[in-house]
């Protein structure tokens, strides 16, 4: 069975998808058969593939970064929220029952687990992206699509936080603080994303954060101007632009990640 790594974020836009795509290419470069997985994809970001599959765009990119083909199992469900009420569709024809939200959550979780099992049989490592902040318990999926799934597949968890708007220490510390203790223990590493400035100035703060939370910093990723994938009206940019993007993402991880810690996580620790 493939090892699963779960990537969760402190906010929307923290950089989960960015990190998952980078990790997929980085692991593929190591010769591993890697695959992305997103239990709950975003319906508004979905793209229709020639094979007829409707998948979250970020999963399609991450699959390409992993040098594998996009599969329905990589993104079993797409969700959109209407006034805070979740509406689910199965990207690969998954059927979900109408009825209470609890029943919907149960069916969604079962669909995620069976898709995950399918992938685990085919690959060495599964890079899994979560859904929103795992402590936003008022949102559908905050529990089961994040730490719930991680627990079920015994995945070590990476917590990604964007530093560009400030408040990064508080959002990391607060997220860990509000997680139930068994979930908090699953979090193995912290990733600080989009840092601009002098790393030396950040170090004392990070050391304090590690001391307070007991968590290791897996990496501080600098903001790289112009790294974002060019967007052309919702369509994917050309193949060579995408390849260059993946190459640069993997190089960023190679330079700034604690590879020793990542290797431990790959061994399920």
């Amino acid at each position: 069975m493939a090892q699963v790594i779960m990537v969760v974020g402190t906010t929307a836009g923290a950089g989960k998808s960015f990190f998952c795509t980078a990790l997929c290419r980085f692991l593929a470069d190591l010769g591993l058969r890697a695959a992305p997985f997103t239990g709950l994809g975003r319906a508004e970001r979905a793209v229709l593939l020639p094979e007829g599959l409707l998948l979250d765009r970020d999963v399609v990119l991450a699959a390409e970064a992993a040098r594998t083909s996009p599969l329905a199992a990589m993104n079993p469900l797409l969700v959109r929220e209407e006034d805070g009420i979740p509406v689910l569709t199965g990207s690969g024809g998954t059927k979900l029952p109408a009825g209470s939200e609890a029943a919907l959550a149960e069916a969604a979780f079962a669909a995620m687990l069976s898709a995950m099992e399918e992938l685990q049989a085919e690959y060495d490592v599964i890079v899994t992206g979560g859904y929103g902040n795992p402590t936003d318990t008022y949102r559908f999926g905050a529990g089961f699509a994040n730490l719930g799934l991680a627990a079920a597949v015994k995945a070590p968890v990476v917590l990604v936080a964007g530093i560009d708007r400030g408040g990064v220490y508080a959002s990391v510390a607060g997220t860990l603080e509000l997680l139930p203790v068994q979930d908090r223990e699953r979090v193995r590493g912290l990733v600080i994303n989009r840092f601009r400035g002098d790393m030396k100035l950040l170090q004392p703060g990070l050391a304090l954060l590690s001391q307070i939370t007991g968590k290791t910093v897996l990496g501080v990723l600098p903001y790289v101007h112009g790294l974002d994938l060019p967007k052309a009206d919702g369509a994917l940019p050309g193949r060579s632009a995408r390849e260059e993007y993946y190459r640069r993402l993997a190089a960023l991880l190679a330079q700034y990640l604690d590879i020793g810690l990542l290797q431990e996580m790959l061994r399920g620790k």
Binding site: T10, N133, D136, E177
Partner: peptide
């Protein structure tokens, strides 16, 4: 805290505790 981006409850709790 900013509910739109999510994680606001955690950010509020974390700010106070730090």
């Amino acid at each position: 805290g900013d509910m739109e981006r999510g994680g606001a409850l955690a950010a509020c709790a974390g700010t106070v505790s730090l």
